[in-house]
Design a protein around this nucleic acid. Structure first.
Lengths: 238, 238
DNA sequence: CGTGCTTTTGAAAATCATCAAGTATAGTGG
DNA sequence: CCACTATACTTGATGATTTTCAAAAGCACG
């Protein structure tokens, strides 16, 4: 628990102050709610951090002292049970905002699955900023509402879809451009995200390949061969 | 889909204008963000509706024209798959706010499981109100963030907990005052909320009774006998 | 080119779902 | 008020998907 702030401090040295104006993630993030003239104030509050792959930078239950904005890389967000069972509640990529929780403690842990750059804000200081920029608050509400919609979709997946439907849904959701789907997370992460075991994930991917719906040139890369069929499967159409 | 507005209109006749100042749900709802002097403006935008048990008043996919605030009764919120599989994503009780979705259409359906009173707001007109009352916006953000935390907890339940752990979690979460837990929803609703079947719900409740953790004086009423043990079970401690 | 980790594949086991009655409960009309 | 019917709930037997246990095959890195 207490490890969090220590760990964060450890990478502060490597943190270059990254002016928001040049931030590659700005157009995709909540920060786009703020106009250029005011970016200086935003930058003054922000703290750029570099996080190596595998480092957990949010610990569930720790005091929620910061908000984060991902500017590079990917993180997994998760909740754990005492015996080690884990549920990954989402993956946060470039532009995503972390730490919305209103409570005093983080409701989930977060760990980098790739090297990351994140922009860290103090909770208390952001409160001031929110008061000054209602547009930012509106944007956060939008973001939260969107997350809520995705969470409901995931509940449908976890509660009612079969393993095949889950994998089909997952692959479709992660397809961004072209037919290639990059999977920076391990099979274990995918399993914990979809409520399955790594063996079932592996077997189901093999089955999808057998059906000619996908190709698997490498473990971390899937090529979608028949998107319409995958979509039907994901939607639960037999 | 289109049935929604028609249905809503059908009960308009029975809708008495309910002054917000007297609203029993106000202290528990988002409306508590608005001070007494401004309540008149809120009331002018609100539309009180009475909904009989069993009526679906939000249809997934319909144009999202309204926000709702529950002032009496309970609704179930759900998503469906084409073949009839259903996932209940939550229950909305007194004070709860519905329809946060930013998209143009509702991401879930809603049906009364008890007779309800709801307060309906036009989306477009509420936007004006939000601009005037930043406090209301802040409150909505709080509500959304809370919902998000609950959604993540539910993902952990659906993805990683056993049937016994799911029922234990459910009963604990619904216990409000005293040892009695009121269950206005059917076993089918509970099953669709917990990602199980009605048979498993029934069997698991019987098992919990056999372990002396609960009593079942009536199908719709559970008495908690051993809360600590239920909590251990819900937390996944073997 | 080992060494360790991830992934895949196989066989057995378990939890939960499905199919099928039987029992309680509530609402209805005589 | 009571029988009747419909619906909800419970219980039992069987079955299937997924998990667990186990081991082999790939792959990345020093």
């Amino acid at each position: 628990m207490a490890a969090f702030s220590v760990r964060a401090r450890a990478v502060d040295a490597a943190a270059a102050i990254e002016p928001c104006g040049h931030c590659g993630a700005r157009t995709r993030s909540v920060c786009n709610a703020i106009e250029a003239p005011d970016l200086a104030r935003l930058a003054a509050l922000a703290h750029g951090l570099t996080i190596p792959a595998g480092r957990q930078f949010i610990e569930e239950g720790d005091a929620a002292e910061h908000f984060f904005n991902v500017t590079a890389g990917t993180a997994k967000l998760f909740k754990m049970l005492p015996d080690g069972r884990r549920q990954i509640t989402g993956f946060a990529g470039v532009g995503d905002f972390l730490g919305l929780a209103v409570s005093a403690t983080y409701a989930f842990g977060a760990e980098a699955i790739e090297p990351m750059r994140i922009c860290r804000f103090s909770r208390s200081r952001l409160k001031t900023l929110l008061a000054d920029f209602p547009a930012l608050e509106r944007r956060l509400l939008e973001v939260a509402a969107n997350e809520l919609v995705m969470a409901q979709e995931q509940m449908l997946l976890l509660g009612r879809k079969t393993a095949r439907e889950r994998l089909a849904s997952f692959l479709i959701a992660r397809q961004s451009h072209g037919d290639a789907v990059r999977l920076p997370m391990t099979r274990s992460d995918i399993a914990d995200y979809l409520g399955l075991t790594i063996e079932t994930v592996s077997r189901t991917l093999t089955w999808l390949r057998g059906q000619r719906l996908i190709e698997i040139p490498a473990a971390a890369e899937i090529v979608i061969r028949d998107r319409p069929a995958l979509e039907r499967l994901a939607a639960g159409l037999r």
